[in-house]
Design a protein around this nucleic acid. Structure first.
Lengths: 112, 112
DNA sequence: ATTTTATGTAAGTCATAACTTACCGTAAGT
DNA sequence: ACTTACGGTAAGTTATGACTTACATAAAAT
């Protein structure tokens, strides 16, 4: 078995959130929902850059849009984080449930 | 406020796990701990590539190493996922605690 | 109707990241 | 001692991604 199980939707979410600027966009869009301009105003990048980031986030289903006249209100969609959370928990829980690991950890870190 | 709060250690973890191959490396190193060769054997990339991925993961404190003779056993360190989990939960919980959002969601997705 | 305002998108630049092959050091086995 | 196995690292290639400025479109305001 020399291949990697690929899940494009899942990968997209990781890639989308790996960029700090894009993560900031996501955070700014959390809660209330903001126009592109409003988001760009709070960031050190151009307005088109924000548009591009929003496209990536939208494709990854991490934000939703509402059209209001000539404005577009983007809002973070926390539900889109579900698969990432599940992945993390899969490995996270290993750490908690196993005392054996904690014990070995010390042994290992001597040569680390 | 036109800057982004930067946390290099935190960013590193995101970047490290955003790559599918590197995520596969991390997963293969979960639980038992494997030699570089053993990991490379299960992936469609070269052994040096795996070494490079492991360096990134190690720098991000997502794996630990144990030296045993000429082998190096790498093991995933779930504790390294803590900060990511906390970040996710911050936005994840918003979704769960607020019924208002769920209601608005429908309204919004009409124009989506 | 003309002019703003809000946004998307195209085109170009530049840095970086994910590979590869080649090479080096070092521990084990003979 | 010599050879083989393990793994890090250097160098080079290539794709991609995060920006920018310039342009295009459509709704609102005058």
């Amino acid at each position: 078995m020399t291949y990697i199980k690929s899940d494009p939707e899942f990968d997209q979410k990781w890639v989308a959130l790996a960029d700090p600027t894009r993560r900031a966009v996501f955070q700014l869009a959390a809660g209330k929902g903001k126009s592109v301009q409003a988001i760009a105003d709070q960031l050190p990048v151009s307005r088109p850059a924000v548009s591009q980031h929003l496209k990536v986030l939208h494709d990854a289903k991490l934000v939703s849009v509402v059209l209001k006249g000539r404005q577009r209100f983007y809002r973070a969609q926390p539900a889109g984080l579900a698969s990432l959370r599940r992945w993390l928990d899969e490995y996270w829980s290993e750490a908690l449930e196993s005392f054996a690991i904690a014990a070995d950890e010390e042994e290992e870190n001597k040569n680390d």
